[in-house]
Nucleic acid binder design. Structure first.
Lengths: 134, 134
DNA sequence: CCATGTGTACTGTGTGTGGTGGTACAGTAG
DNA sequence: CTACTGTACCACCACACACAGTACACATGG
């Protein structure tokens, strides 16, 4: 089930991308599963078809989905998505951004780490994407 | 010293805000210190004066800086900036955003936490903002 | 008094992104 | 042939960002 929120500051197409990517990473959506059609999901979310198509395009370009012409989009099998340099760059960017966002909130570092650990473990990420598959 | 990078995806005024806020939070800029003038910093960064003014305005609105008419802007004394609800909301938003950014990178949760702990402790944040001052 | 430097507030103008609406086309299944 | 699929366009509007210029009130040093 994909949901979007008007109160969310993120663009609509990004909410869709994040939502689907999260469901794939947690195993809620398994490889081979067919996704709702562009027009169907757009109807359900009451948004434009182009907005859904944009989200699907990004997910396909990043290797999360695969397109079968005339049939639809399907969750692809896990594989390595980024180079080591790109992984490191993105992680560093995410860390810096996180720090900038919490820097004025006066939280203790231990409290921040504890909170992150709780939310990270609650997801139960499938981490078999870079190893154990050919 | 404030620097901006053209390769950074963040808007210029946000880079300025983050940079100054970080320097205040780490104690690199002490309360009472006078900041570069709007026109001076704009000249130094080869950026429009309005862009610098926008950054300074946000920092002043959030309580990091204080304006003395005709004199300039100065680092204000630490104090509580947000309500408890706002603090919690912003922390939650930052955590969710961080997770969304690293979810496809196939990092082990422990590795993520270790990295965050390292970068957080390296900053040595001044955490006396909500207690011990009147 | 006057010139200079300070923040602040406007009014434009241009560019890029996000979102919507509509049309069109190739591939697949019934 | 019909209906569904993704995909690629086009046009339009709204908004944020950045730049450019002007103006005003304040404080300081001549």
């Amino acid at each position: 089930m994909i949901q979007i929120s008007t109160g969310d500051s993120r663009p609509i197409f990004r909410q869709i991308v994040d939502s689907i990517r999260l469901q794939i990473a947690t195993g809620e959506l398994e490889p081979g599963t067919k996704l709702p059609s562009v027009r169907g999901l757009a109807m359900q979310l009451t948004v434009n078809t182009n907005t859904v198509a944009k989200a699907y395009n990004e997910l396909t370009a990043q290797g999360w989905l695969e397109s079968r012409p005339g049939l639809g989009l399907f969750v692809s099998k896990p594989r390595k998505l980024f180079s080591d340099r790109e992984r490191e760059r993105r992680l560093n960017e995410a860390v810096q951004q996180f720090i900038n966002q919490v820097i004025g909130l006066d939280y203790d570092p231990d409290e921040l780490l504890q909170r992150l650990e709780r939310d990270l473990r609650a997801l139960d990420i499938r981490s078999a994407r870079s190893a154990g598959n050919e």
